[in-house]
Computed example of a mutant assay.
Amino acid sequence: MTQLPHEDESAESPRELRDQVERTRHELAGTVEALAAKADVRARAQEKATEVKDQTVAKAGELKEQAVVKARELKDKAADAATRAQDKLPDLPAPVKDKAVQARAQAARTGRVWEEKAPEPLRARTAQGARAARNNRAVLLAAGGAAALVWLAYRRRNG
């Protein structure tokens, strides 16, 4: 327990006693300030809210950057696929090749607009869907083939 100045037997003069009183006041003021800070729930809650907000903003920035990178990767992969498809069909007539070049250019423009204007949650969901499609290519190809067979059968029957 803190010793009170009047209990201290080493205080021999009024000057020493005043100094002890002043030190005690200073210590007491620090203790009161510490207790007041602990008791100020609103200020502590605001500090915590600011901390959480800063963490959230930082995480959102990271996620946005990741989405932009993924969008660029997808755009590049689409452009590469278009180039490979064009290279596999070199004997196409010039108008068809021109259409393919125009389609590739339009895909690139659409990718840029997408990166600029799509909201972050939508870009994230799109990236997630693209990952799912890449991971399940065989299922998607089988479903596409089945859909094509159904369409051909329907066309044959009604055509």
Score class of each variant (00 low, 15 high):
V150D: 09
T50F: 12
K88I: 04
P5L: 08
E12S: 08
R104K: 13
A36S: 06
R123F: 09
A81L: 14
P93L: 14
L28T: 03
V69K: 13
A107T: 06
E73C: 07
V96L: 13
E73N: 10
D8M: 07
A58R: 15
Q128N: 04
A105V: 06
R137N: 03
K88N: 11
A124S: 11
D19H: 01
D76W: 08
A100M: 14
A49V: 03
V21F: 01
L35P: 00
V57A: 08
E115S: 14
E33I: 02
T31A: 12
P14F: 05
E73K: 11
A94V: 09
A60M: 13
V41S: 06
R125W: 15
E47C: 02
Q128V: 02
P121N: 07
A127T: 11
S13K: 05
A36R: 09
G61R: 15
V101Y: 08
N158G: 09
T24D: 01
G145W: 12
A133T: 03
R123V: 07
V150E: 14
E62K: 13
L92G: 03
G145R: 13
Q3G: 08
D91E: 06
A58V: 04
A67T: 02
R44T: 03
G61W: 09
D54W: 08
Q106Y: 05
V57M: 10
P90K: 14
D19M: 01
A130P: 00
A29C: 03
A133R: 15
L35H: 06
K53W: 15
E16A: 03
A60H: 12
L4R: 14
V41Y: 08
P93D: 15
R44K: 14
L28F: 05
A146Y: 07
T2H: 02
P119G: 12
L141S: 06
D87R: 14
G30K: 09
P93E: 14
A29Y: 04
K59W: 14
N135V: 02
P95H: 14
A132Q: 09
K117V: 12
A143N: 03
G111R: 03
V113T: 11
Q128T: 06
K117H: 14
E115N: 09
A60I: 15
E116N: 10
L35M: 04
A103R: 13
A39I: 05
R18F: 10
Q102S: 03
E7L: 05
G129K: 15
R123G: 00
D98K: 15
L74C: 03
A34T: 04
D19F: 01
T31L: 06
E62D: 09
A100R: 12
T126A: 10
R104G: 05
E16T: 01
A36V: 02
L63G: 12
A78C: 05
A85F: 15
T50C: 05
L140E: 00
T110P: 00
K75P: 00
W151L: 15
L17G: 00
D76H: 12
V21L: 05
R123S: 11
V69P: 00
Q128I: 04
A43Y: 07
N136Q: 08
E22K: 01
L35Y: 06
L122Y: 04
E33V: 00
E116V: 13
V57Y: 11
P121C: 10
D87E: 07
A45D: 08
L89S: 07
A45Y: 09
Q46R: 13
A82D: 11
L141W: 05
A118T: 12
V113E: 08
D19T: 01
E62S: 08
D76G: 04
E33K: 10
E33C: 02
Q106H: 03
E7Q: 10
